[in-house]
Structures are given as structure tokens and as C-alpha cells.
């Protein structure tokens, strides 16, 4: 058992533990922080397998962007320190049961299958490789998906503004009018 292995297990335990906390914490702000740690843990795993670029993207976009966005929305919609209402026990049990069954089934399948693992001596892709491939227009290049994604992001941006900025006080319905 060398250092690399120990680091991997530490990372794995860190990620899973905070993932578990993130979905069980009763305070939503804490939940968001635990999510942040989980994402950092995943970024650590990316580092561990020498994919520095994707790890950096993970930290920049997820940790720096998405989680911050989530925390913003938490502040917009919640009082600080407010505890979430408890979920029904039966819902919890059934949810756990269904999730565990799925988990068991998938693991069973994964460990029964022999993946053709190639040796680790291949060098990791450099940022230069990624960049030229991403904007490559030849066979196997990703220029078109790249453009499509940019369109998607633009559409999402416009959509967010349209949805969130629409404020018509006269049409506001009383809450929960069933």
C-alpha cells in the first residue's frame, strides 16, 4: 500500500462521506457546503488520475460557479439557520430501498464484467491536445458540438433572464391555492 493508494482511499472516503452529508443535512446552507466538498473531492480524484485540465474545469465551473449560484439562491429563498422540514419516514425508507436495489444491481453488473483495461503507461492528454481537438474540424474534431454548446449557453442565459425577470405583481396568486 503506497502513498498514492492511501490518497485515493482518502479521497474516495472524503467524497462519499460529504456526498452522503449533502443529501441528509437538515440545514440547506450546510448541505450546499457539503456539496462543495464533494465536488472538490471529485476534482481531487481527477487530479489523482492525472487529468489536471478537467480537474481545473471542475473546480472553476462547479465549485466557483454552480455552487456559488446555489448558495445565492439559498440566500434568496431561505432564512439563515432555518431547518428544513422532515421528510416522511416511509418516503425515506422506500427511497433508500429503491436506491440501494439499483446500486446493488449496477455494482453486480459492473463487477461481473471484464473491462479491457489498458496499461497506465500512456501519457495523459495535454491542454494543447485538448484545445486542438476541441476546435478541430477534421474527422473526430469537436468544433460543431462546441458551437452548439455555445448556442445552448446563450439560449439558457436568455431563458433565465426571461423567466426570472418576469414580475407581474397583479397576477400574483395567493400561495398554494389548491
Amino acid at each position: 500500500m503506497n502513498g498514492s493508494t492511501i490518497i485515493f482511499y482518502l479521497l474516495a472516503a472524503f467524497t462519499l462521506a460529504f456526498g452522503m452529508l449533502a443529501v441528509t443535512a437538515r440545514q440547506i446552507f450546510r448541505s450546499a457546503i457539503y456539496l462543495l466538498f464533494t465536488l472538490v473531492g471529485i476534482a481531487g480524484i481527477y487530479f489523482w488520475i492525472d487529468y489536471e485540465f478537467i480537474a481545473a474545469v471542475q473546480i472553476v465551473v462547479y465549485v466557483g460557479g454552480i455552487v456559488v449560484l446555489i448558495i445565492f439562491s439559498v440566500f434568496l429563498t431561505h432564512q439563515a439557520g432555518e431547518k428544513l422540514p422532515k421528510q416522511l419516514l416511509s418516503r425515506k425508507i422506500f427511497g433508500a430501498l429503491a436506491a440501494f436495489c439499483g446500486f446493488a444491481l449496477v455494482l453486480l453488473q459492473v463487477f461481473q464484467h471484464e473491462f479491457a483495461v489498458v496499461g497506465k503507461d500512456v501519457p495523459s492528454p495535454t491542454v494543447k491536445d485538448i484545445g486542438s481537438k476541441m476546435l478541430g474540424t477534421d474527422h473526430g474534431g469537436y468544433a460543431l458540438p462546441f458551437e452548439v454548446i455555445s448556442m445552448l449557453l446563450l439560449a439558457a442565459m436568455v431563458g433565465c433572464i426571461v423567466i426570472a425577470m418576469r414580475s407581474r405583481p397583479e397576477e400574483k396568486e395567493p400561495a398554494n391555492s389548491k
Binding site: G95, F103, V106
Partner: peptide
């Protein structure tokens, strides 16, 4: 897998 089902 574990993370996936934690999410689920």
C-alpha cells in the same frame, strides 16, 4: 455508482 445512488 455510489455517488450516483446517493444523488438518487
Amino acid at each position: 455508482t455510489a455517488l450516483f445512488f446517493i444523488g438518487v
